[in-house]
């Protein structure tokens, strides 16, 4: 005789799948640079697309929690969030998926498969293209700060090398703050040595511009957005993260300046 299935347990299992799948979408958005309100809206849209009546969410820096309520049943689930970065195309793709799911007509399996496909197939620029682009961006930052043309070339090379090494270190799971310190030291040293060799008159500015790839512009703006949207805890966490990155980056520049004899330790 087959054991009789408890309908409450069955419904809980269904809700659990919806909650976990919505959280997975939210986690990807969060890791791709979305603000908390966007993540909450996206998760809410996906859950409601499956007939969930109420959705409650809480966001921490390293985890997301959702409570879904439907047909008298309620469950709460939590999911770990990984390193927060920026991936515009993946973020936008998940947002479009959330809109499609909110219109109804998709199964949980279909949405899970679509999320997996987007994660796997959303294109990324090759690492060397990103490195060259970041080098150009750093050198352009340098021009905006007032460096001369010899320093422009030095920053371009330092920024490119710095970004490529940063990519490799992060890819190998090295702590993001240690990476910030190491890359600041490497890029500032390369930028400084290059500026000296090319007889630049703006060596210190060149060293500073070479590390601007590390300045977390999106997290600092997201920190403000989160606070303005009513999530001061997350906003504060982001702000502290930004400060820590800059502290490590500054220490890296400090050591680079000491190495080149521009500052005493």
């Amino acid at each position: 005789m087959e054991p009789q299935q408890d309908p409450v347990v069955v419904r809980h299992r269904e809700l659990e799948r919806i909650a976990n799948m919505a959280l997975r979408a939210g986690r990807i958005m969060m890791e791709s640079g979305a603000s908390v309100s966007v993540v909450h809206n996206g998760v809410g849209m996906i859950a409601r697309g499956f007939g969930v009546d109420d959705v409650g969410m809480r966001s921490g820096y390293a985890s997301l929690e959702v409570t879904v309520h439907a047909g008298g049943n309620t469950i709460t689930r939590m999911m770990q969030v990984g390193r927060l970065g920026v991936n515009h195309r993946l973020d936008q793709a998940i947002r479009r998926l959330a809109v499609r799911v909110s219109h109804g007509g998709m199964s949980v399996d279909e949405v899970e498969a679509e999320i997996a496909r987007l994660v796997k197939e959303t294109p990324r620029h090759p690492a060397w293209v990103v490195a060259v682009a970041v080098g150009i961006a750093c050198a352009s930052f340098g021009r905006l700060l007032g460096v001369d043309w010899p320093a422009f070339t030095a920053i371009l090379i330092a920024g490119t090398v710095g970004q490529y090494v940063r990519h490799q270190l992060l890819h190998n799971g090295v702590n993001v703050f240690i990476v910030a310190g190491l890359i600041a030291f490497l890029s500032a040293t390369l930028g400084g040595v290059g500026a000296i060799l090319l007889k630049s008159g703006t060596i210190s500015l060149a060293m500073m511009a070479s590390i601007l790839l590390l300045v977390p512009g999106v997290p600092s703006t997201n920190a403000q957005t989160d606070i303005m949207d009513g999530y001061p805890t997350m906003g504060s966490a982001r702000a502290v993260w930004v400060l820590m990155i800059m502290v490590f980056a500054s220490v890296g520049v400090w050591f680079a300046e000491a190495l080149l004899g521009l500052r005493s330790l």
């Binding site: 195309r89 970041v134 352009s140």
Partner: peptide, 24 residues
């Protein structure tokens, strides 16, 4: 013009880092 050109280059460079598509 100088500031606008280098502002454009910096924004586009960071756009690549943020994985914006070529159309954006």
């Amino acid at each position: 013009l100088h500031q606008a050109v280098f502002g454009a280059l910096a924004a586009a460079g960071f756009g690549v880092l943020f994985n914006f598509g070529f159309r954006a």
